[in-house]
Design a protein around this nucleic acid. Structure first.
Length: 276
DNA sequence: TAGCCGATCCCCT
DNA sequence: GGGGATCGGCTAA
């Protein structure tokens, strides 16, 4: 049982975010096997990166709670690296991927954020909700991107790439049926989740996931990743696809695991300054 | 392998 | 009415 509510903790920490709507919509993606492919390189088992599991608001023993998500966007973007995103399909199939790349969007002052200038619209309402709320939006007429609300109004973290761990064949099916042209070529493991919209396709995440709460939802949650065998270097690089955001386009607000083959875009120049 | 560019439609102004 | 936190096919080197 929770010992304190999300609102209570949010107030305690000085936040003003709103409670997310309970989204009970679920979709019915196709099923597939969960056989992991041994062909792609792996970084090895990750190690614990922070505090222990939160049992607050949890219906799953390993699920991370509000105490994890309630931190500023930059530190949350870093904290996400190594954690495992879990998607449970309607038939019970669980898809797992370790987060290897994120981007921080800081809120009203961030010219590249949808919440720039304090803009709050029906589309980006979830950016202003309780930390841990999903902000899923539709882009370029055919893709979705998934963010997680962080501490601070209008601030969030974009999930850009995962290392697929479990349910790879299901992910491959979901990705294949989503692609605009079907050449029949089987996608390589590296192509499953190496981009913000790719991972949404691979995990069957669409607009119905907007405003869901990662600390409570039955179909998606975050788990503490297992320890890294060796502390990885984290690269801080400019965000991707930010064209007209002035100085904000160059700020090092994208974070990824150096050397990971699962990252979407590698920035060699930024890697010169990689830090642990 | 890198760079270019079209697809496609919701959402904001 | 126009832009966009992307993706993937095609072409050139």
């Amino acid at each position: 049982m929770p010992v304190r509510s999300g609102i209570q903790l949010s107030r305690k920490l000085g936040q003003k975010k709103q409670r997310p709507l309970e989204a009970e919509q679920h979709q019915s993606p196709p099923d597939g096997s969960q056989t992991p492919s041994p062909k792609e390189p792996r970084l090895g088992l990750p190690k614990t990166l922070g505090p222990q599991y939160s049992i607050y608001f949890s219906n799953h023993p390993a699920r991370l709670g509000l105490d994890f998500f309630d931190q500023p966007a930059v530190s949350l973007a870093r904290a996400f690296l190594g954690q495992v995103l879990v998607r449970q399909l309607d038939d019970g199939t669980e898809l797992r991927g370790r987060i290897v790349e994120t981007e921080a969007y800081l809120g009203p002052e961030d010219e590249a954020a949808h919440s720039r200038g304090g803009r709050q619209t029906p589309r980006n309402r979830s950016m202003f909700m309780t930390p841990g709320t999903l902000y899923v939006y539709f882009i370029y007429g055919m893709y979705f991107c998934m963010n997680v609300s962080s501490q601070g109004d209008g601030a969030c973290v974009l999930l850009r790439a995962l290392e697929p761990l479990e349910g790879l064949e299901t992910m491959r099916q979901l990705r294949s049926t989503s692609r605009k042209s079907n050449t029949g070529r089987a996608l390589k493991d590296r192509e499953l989740c190496s981009g913000p919209s790719k991972l949404c396709q691979a995990l069957a995440i669409n607009k119905s996931f907007d405003q869901r709460d990662l600390t409570k939802d039955k179909a998606i949650w975050l788990e503490r990743g297992p320890p890294w065998p060796r502390e990885p270097a984290v690269v801080a690089a400019a965000r991707v696809g930010i064209g007209n955001a002035g100085e904000w386009a160059q700020k090092p607000l994208r974070f990824y695991i150096q050397g990971s083959p699962w990252v979407s875009v590698v920035d060699r120049a930024a890697e010169q300054n990689a830090q642990v």
